[in-house]
């Protein structure tokens, strides 16, 4: 369908180029409210926030310029630095593990096993829970006094110790377990849909050529599933950046400040510390970090095609 439209569009463009803006006017009128919302709420709100991050706004926003003071303070604050490194650790691990686990589960389900829909439901079920419920549930499971540790010790393995949430060095992995448990089911479903979209003939051709199953997946199927992987990547990445409620529910940033994340810093400095300027500076830095990742990707994805 997109191919047809594109050629049609090219033909029309050749005939009368300036009229392109007015093609399909009803669709454009219909999308005006959304365009306005995007401009005013997203772009306008973002600009407003960035502008106010250069002021000394406290409880109320005000335009009293202080230059880069808020940013200097931000990058001198140990809590912010810990938040950033925590997010990087969580982000990398979560991205790799969620994609891997999601794909492996989907591939296993795609091998025409019995009770496929039952397994699919079980794996997808955690996604139906909010992060707050997930966080509380895993806080209890990982509690050394009545969770997993005491259960295993009760079975007779007395020396078993598993207490990630109370150790500053391992607390992020405790969060990671909960995050992956919650998120990999959805990625599995998306992957499964992608696998089902692969033509059966591809498999037959691979079998005729005598290529092994694993090799077929890695060399043929995964490259064909590129759009599905991009979708999964965007979903996971947006979940990582906005990581907040899981931390609040499971550890509340503790022990100490060892599981703090940037979004929590923003919220707490804006409302608890009543220092809007500092919170805006932190949220601007979050935006900048997203843009730094997004621009090279967008360039590769969209810019590369024109040349090729």
């Amino acid at each position: 369908m997109s191919v047809v439209e594109q050629t049609g569009g090219q033909r029309a463009a050749k005939a009368r180029k300036p009229m392109r803006l007015f093609r399909n006017p009803m669709a454009k009128i219909a999308s005006i409210p959304m365009i306005l919302t995007a401009m005013v709420v997203f772009v306008g709100g973002t600009l407003w926030t960035v502008v106010h991050s250069f002021t000394d706004s406290r409880l109320l926003p005000r335009l009293n310029w202080v230059g880069l003071d808020q940013y200097e303070r931000l990058w001198d604050t140990p809590r912010w630095l810990i938040s950033i490194s925590n997010l990087a650790l969580y982000g990398v691990c979560s991205l790799v593990l969620t994609l891997t686990i999601g794909f492996v589960l989907a591939a296993l389900l795609d091998r025409k096993i019995r009770f496929e829909s039952a397994f699919r439901t079980i794996f997808l079920y955690p996604f139906a829970l909010s992060f707050v419920v997930t966080g509380i549930a895993w806080q209890w499971i990982l509690n050394p006094d009545f969770g997993l540790q005491s259960l295993v010790q009760g079975w007779g393995w007395e020396s078993f110790a598993f207490d990630p949430l109370n150790d500053p060095d391992t607390v992020m992995f405790g969060l990671l377990i909960a995050g992956i448990w919650q998120g990999s089911g959805l990625i599995m479903c998306i992957m499964l849909a992608g696998l089902r979209g692969i033509d059966e003939d591809i498999w037959k051709a691979a079998r005729v050529d005598g290529i092994g199953t694993v090799k077929t997946y890695i060399r043929i199927i995964i490259p064909m599933m590129r759009p599905v992987f991009i979708t999964a990547l965007v979903l996971i990445a947006s979940g990582i950046i906005k990581l907040y409620d899981l931390v609040v529910a499971q550890t509340n940033g503790g022990p100490g400040i060892s599981s703090e994340v940037p979004a929590k810093y923003v919220i707490e400095y804006m409302f608890r510390a009543q220092n809007l300027g500092q919170g805006f500076a932190a949220s601007t830095m979050m935006l900048v970090s997203v843009i730094i990742i997004l621009i090279p990707w967008a360039y590769l994805e969209f810019g590369g095609k024109k040349n090729g």
Partner: peptide, 17 residues
């Protein structure tokens, strides 16, 4: 409130580590 929050952050870090 700003200074209080910063001191609380410091204390949380100090007591737990």
């Amino acid at each position: 409130a700003d200074t209080q929050t910063q001191i609380e952050d410091l204390m949380a870090e100090f007591w737990s580590g």
